[in-house]
């Protein structure tokens, strides 16, 4: 029953523990902290997209709600960061129910557009509701969060904190997949008719997973606010929703691990490209953040055209094909032995 997944989780924690010993540069640590936020949101999105088969192109909006709830409640109302994060979760649950109950009755393109439209509405509100969000100027002086009396105001501390939360998110996610509820969700993805024929209450399951994945995003948003101490509407635009979708698709939609790998890879990509710039300076090629949109779009397209199951599956098949000896079965995790 998915033992590989839990071995993977142990490896994950081991890697997280050792990284700050290997990477001492604070800048790179901070890049990895941002990767953690994306990772958390992507794990949630992958549960919705890859397991339940329901698309959302509005998830950045949930990240935004979490971030703004944390920002507003701590700065303007003086709440403690933990309380504000909790309130953000509650708010996101309510919003996800409000939008999810009608939206999840829709399928395919309609659901995609509905979530897209909803995300855009929240973005417009973030820009226009100056009294609450500070408008385009945003909210600043958001306090840092502390844990057991320890203020998490250094990159390294926040690195451990954020990745520990990703680990917890992964643990919950993995448990869920290998459970009655997880099978119900995967059944809905496989055949909604068949799932209903054995008694899976599909509307209820879809809304549950939609809300859960929104909660993952909300927590990612709150963490972002406490780390950066400043928020504006920019990072919660539709482009970020598409980026989250890209991350999940790149790693592999049908595995939570795909979301983790995809989120890390795409979060590190800009750094990698800037690094490459140095090598290509001679030929006049220079990486510039403006290229990100084009690059992300191209990656998403290439993956969808050539590796629709994502990198994990693609590399697995490649290894299986080349190695022959290395027998990597698809859906090995669910072999149920």
């Amino acid at each position: 029953m998915g033992r590989q997944d839990y071995i993977g989780l142990c490896v994950f924690f081991a890697v997280v523990l050792t990284i700050p010993f290997l990477i001492t540069n604070d800048y790179y640590i901070s890049v990895l902290v941002f990767a953690a936020f994306n990772c958390l949101a992507c794990i949630g999105l992958s549960l919705l997209l890859g397991y339940a088969g329901q698309i959302s192109i509005g998830h950045a909006a949930f990240v935004g709600v979490g971030a703004y709830a944390s920002g507003y409640l701590t700065v303007e109302m003086g709440w403690s960061p933990w309380m504000a994060m909790g309130a953000g979760v509650v708010l996101v649950v309510l919003i996800a129910l409000l939008i999810g109950v009608p939206a999840l009755r829709l399928k395919g393109h309609y659901l995609a557009m509905a979530t897209f439209g909803f995300g855009t509405i929240l973005y417009i509100v973030a820009v226009a509701a100056v009294d609450f969000t500070g408008g385009p100027a945003g909210l600043s002086d958001i306090p840092a969060i502390s844990l057991f009396g320890l203020v998490l105001d250094t990159d390294k501390r926040f690195f451990y904190f954020s990745w520990a939360i990703v680990g917890i998110g992964l643990y919950f996610g993995l448990n869920l997949i290998h459970s009655r509820v997880g099978r119900g969700l995967r059944a809905i993805h496989g055949s909604e008719d068949a799932a209903e024929s054995v008694g899976v209450d599909t509307p209820f399951y879809k809304i549950q997973i939609f809300v859960l994945s929104a909660v993952y995003s909300s927590i990612a948003g709150s963490l972002y606010a406490y780390y950066v101490n400043y928020i504006d509407p920019g990072p919660f635009s539709m482009m970020h929703s598409v980026l989250l979708l890209t991350m999940v698709a790149v790693g592999g939609m049908h595995k939570v691990w795909g979301a983790v790998i995809g989120a890390i890879l795409l979060s590190l990509l800009p750094e990698f490209l800037s690094f490459l710039t140095e090598s290509f300076q001679a030929v006049g090629l220079e990486y510039n953040e403006d290229y990100n949109t084009l690059i992300h779009g191209s990656i998403l397209l290439l993956i969808m055209l050539f590796l629709p199951e994502g990198l994990i599956d693609g590399l697995g098949r490649l290894a299986g094909g080349v190695g022959g000896m290395i027998n990597i079965k698809r859906h090995q995790d669910s072999a149920g032995t």
Binding site: R183, A187, G190, A194, A195, V200
Partner: peptide, 14 residues
């Protein structure tokens, strides 16, 4: 109508 991405056992578990 089976769940083709799941194992045989998982299908019955559903």
């Amino acid at each position: 109508q089976i769940f083709s991405d799941m194992t045989v056992l998982e299908n019955v578990m559903v």
